[in-house]
Amino acid sequence: MNNDERQFEDFARGIKFDDNPNAEHRDELEQDLLRVLTKQPRHKQHPLKIWRIIMKSNMTKLATAAVIIVAVVLTVTILDRTVTPAWAIEDTIKALDQFSGIYLSGVFGVPIEKISRGEDLVLKDGENMSVEFWMQANEERTRSENFRIEAGDGTVWSVCNSMTYKYDPKNNTVRVQSGRSIESSIWPCGDYLSKVQEFMQDWQVMYGKDAVTGRDCAFITLSNPSQGQSWWLEIDLETNLPVRAKGWHNTRREGTPSMNFQRIIFFEKLPDDIFEFEIPEGATVIEE
């Protein structure tokens, strides 16, 4: 410690800071955090007069890509049955049949040439965006029914009870549309698995432990040359469900993944209030 440091320390020694934490604030913040973590019920909105607009968007494509990645994982587990008997596909399918809700969170860095520009979400080349999805399957489990996506730039799209809400944080506007203008058009149920087996080529399986939880996992790499895509997937060997996944827009898994899901969680059923949309204070509502 040099002279300046010693002098400053001498000066600061004995200074009284009123820095005792406020228990009330700590408890209030804890409740706020719990609400965020568990997505407590939001305020109900007044019904709005709307009309239907069908649109295709990047968000829709991203959502479909997210579900495809999950579906591919499950297909891999089928193919791997003969290689690793401990990997019980029956258990996987059985487990999967108990779930009709999925939560995914991750980062998208979508090359601009791969996904056309949409009017609502534009990712510039090399730009990353954190994205969270909540999806609830329809009764037939053939597609998503309720849907919510929150992007890192504050964009929120939500489909609830056949109403679509799109919040644009830049303009502080909410567009309200009738019907489901966002959905995942597939669902990773057992029936779907056989249809996507053809996606996979050049797959390899390695075993190890999850870097965060230390749980036993299978790490799978595979590619789909016809689409120019490749994936890295992590499956929890205890639950037989995918927990992480990455995707590239090349067949060699080179460079930064264009999709990097670090959390994939299955739910028996997601609470309905997750999909309810609360119009932010001061936002302009545009009925379409």
């Binding site: 820095d19 955090l33 973590l37």
Partner: peptide, 26 residues
């Protein structure tokens, strides 16, 4: 590790670090 999937574990983590963060802010 637990806090990634368990809000209760996250809250425990929060309680453990709240005071240090608050004091640093003060």
């Amino acid at each position: 590790a637990q806090a990634r999937n368990d809000p209760a574990a996250f809250v425990q983590l929060y309680r453990r670090h709240y005071d240090a963060v608050f004091r640093y802010c003060v």
